[in-house]
């Protein structure tokens, strides 16, 4: 006797993008009122000019639902068409209930498979890889993948090394089946982790219960280990670096973004490859940063539908994931 499985489809593609940010802008000058820092120091070290911080009355699920609704609208699908919702997040203040089921309900998606996924700043790429494979295997038809973070709940506002970096946001993508191999718009995921370095980005449970990171160690890891992951994702998709129109790395720190781009160009990426710099006005929003940056670039006309984008996320865990996608 053998069990019946659904028919496999050729692959998956992204058909909608959306993002959401709180209204409240916090500038470097605002932060300099609170901690010993300056606008120039922050610009030089992390490349951030301003970020958005949610007020108490805006929850992580509020941001997730807003980004998800916008992505759905962009896709042309109805909420009832979605059968799976994945929320990548690492900043829920309570582990129960999860964010995904509530978010789905808020959007009007009926009884979907709904789960949270914690791969920190790599979360969106983990979620997108999972979504594409669920679709390819026939387990899902239309998946809403959302990266949503309210990092402000975990920021130590007296720690000048971290409070200048992190911010709140959500970014989302609608992923659906590709009917033919030519239609496939999400490449294979290149992913992994380095749990031996788990202590370099963590919540300080023994003291402040806030987020802390070993800046130099993370910077070294990100500037040396992430470009190879991105190159692996390109190779897995059967492309070469010269095929990449736009690079969208996790917006951790502008200097990391620039280091990854520089390394990829040494390995054949084009000089005219566009590189996401959404961090300048959005801060580091962990799992939200990649879909939000892509959404913002498309809205600004920096990226066009049909172009080839290379996504790569990396962060606490340590964890990392990347894939090539066709911009919807």
């Amino acid at each position: 006797m053998s069990l019946r499985l659904p028919a496999a489809v050729p692959g998956a593609k992204i058909i909608g993008l959306g993002s959401a940010q709180p209204d409240h802008v916090v500038t470097n000058h605002d932060l300099a009122q609170r901690v010993e820092t300056s606008d120039q120091w922050i610009r030089d070290r992390v490349g951030i000019v301003e970020r958005r911080i949610a007020k108490d009355d805006t929850s992580l699920v509020d941001l997730a639902a807003e980004a998800g609704s916008r992505a759905l609208k962009d896709s042309g699908l109805e909420p009832t068409d979605v059968d799976t919702v994945i929320v990548a997040t690492c900043t829920m203040t309570a582990p129960i209930p999860n964010a995904a089921a509530q978010t789905a309900d808020r959007i009007g998606i009926t009884a979907p498979a709904a789960f949270d996924l914690n791969a920190a700043c790599a979360g969106f790429c983990y979620g997108l890889g999972t979504a594409a494979d669920l679709i390819r295997a026939g387990s899902a038809r239309n998946v809403l993948v959302i990266g949503a973070e309210k990092l402000s709940d975990w920021i130590d506002w007296d720690d000048r090394s971290t409070c200048i970096i992190f911010a709140d946001a959500a970014g989302a993508a609608v992923v659906t089946a590709a009917r033919t191999p030519e239609e496939v718009g999400v490449g294979p995921v290149a992913w992994g982790s380095a749990g031996d370095q788990a202590a370099t980005i963590r919540i300080l449970e023994e003291s402040t219960n806030k987020l802390w990171q070993h800046g130099q160690a993370v910077f070294r890891w990100a500037t040396t280990r992430i470009a190879p992951v991105a190159l692996d994702a390109v190779a897995k998709a059967g492309l070469t670096p010269a095929d990449i129109d736009v690079l969208v790395p996790h917006q951790a720190n502008l200097r990391i973004v620039e280091a990854v781009a520089k390394r990829l160009r040494k390995d054949g990426a084009r000089e005219d490859m566009r590189v996401a710099d959404d961090i300048v006005h959005s801060g580091n929003t962990s799992s939200a940063s990649i879909p939000m940056a892509l959404d913002h670039m498309r809205a600004a006309g920096t990226v066009r539908s049909g172009e080839i984008a290379l996504l790569v996320g990396f962060g606490a865990g340590l964890s990392y994931a990347g894939q090539v996608v066709v911009v919807p």
């Binding site: 800046g215 070294r220 040396t224 200097r255």
Partner: peptide, 11 residues
């Protein structure tokens, strides 16, 4: 030279 550039120099 700041701490992050020192890391790049070390690498």
């Amino acid at each position: 030279i700041d701490s992050l550039s020192m890391v790049e120099i070390a690498v």
